[in-house]
Amino acid sequence: MKRLYLDFYNETENKRRRIIVNDPVEGLTAEQVQSAMQTLLDSKVLEGYAIDRAVVVETSSNEFFDLIQ
C-alpha cells in the first residue's frame, strides 16, 4: 500500500501536523504536491503552519495465516 504523507510545522507552537493520502495518484511531481500543500495553507486549513516535507511511503505485508475470518 502506498501513502503520501504531507507534513506541516508550526514553529510558534512547536507542533507538527500530518495529512495522509492513501493510494496517491501515480506520477505525482514534487511541484504538484507542493502546490497542493500551499493551497491548504492559503485556504487557512492549517493556519499558522508551514510546509515541512512530503514523502510517499510504500509498505507490504506477508500474511502467514488468518485463523478467524
Rank of each mutant, 00 (worst) to 15 (best):
R18G: 00
E63S: 08
A50I: 10
Q69T: 08
K15Y: 03
D66I: 01
N14M: 10
F64L: 14
T59M: 04
Y9E: 07
P24C: 00
N22G: 02
I51C: 09
F8S: 05
E11F: 11
V21Y: 01
S43L: 13
A36V: 03
Y49V: 03
Q38P: 03
T59Y: 08
L28Q: 02
D23S: 12
M37N: 07
L40C: 09
L46V: 12
Y9A: 05
V56T: 15
E31R: 06
I19F: 12
K2Y: 05
I68K: 09
R18A: 01
A50H: 09
Q38S: 11
E63Q: 09
E58A: 11
L28N: 01
A30H: 11
T12M: 10
D42S: 12
F8N: 03
N14K: 14
I20K: 05
V21M: 04
E26A: 13
E47Q: 12
Q34G: 05
A30M: 06
T39Q: 14
E47S: 11
D7Q: 14
G27K: 01
M37E: 03
Y5M: 13
N10G: 02
I19R: 13
N10Q: 09
D7F: 07
S60W: 05
Y49C: 04
N10K: 08
D23E: 14
D23R: 04
D66E: 05
D52L: 15
R3I: 07
D66F: 00
S60D: 10
S43H: 11
S60C: 02
F65R: 05
G48Q: 02
S60F: 10
N14S: 13
N62H: 12
F8D: 07
F64Q: 04
R17S: 11
Q38T: 11
D66S: 06
V25D: 08
L28K: 03
S43M: 13
L4V: 03
L67F: 03
S61A: 13
I68N: 03
L46Q: 10
G48P: 01
K15S: 05
L41S: 00
D52R: 14
G48E: 00
T12S: 13
D7R: 15
K2G: 01
V56E: 15
M1A: 12
R17H: 12
R53P: 01
Y5I: 09
D23C: 04
G48H: 02
M37T: 06
L6I: 10
M1S: 14
E47Y: 09
K2Q: 15
L40P: 02
I19W: 08
T29Y: 04
V55H: 13
L4E: 00
V57I: 15
E63K: 10
M37I: 06
G48M: 02
E58L: 00
L46K: 14
E26G: 01
V33G: 10
K44A: 09
V45Q: 12
V21A: 03
L46T: 12
I68A: 03
S43P: 02
L46S: 10
Q34H: 08
L28T: 00
N62T: 14
V21H: 02
G27A: 05
N62I: 12
F8R: 06
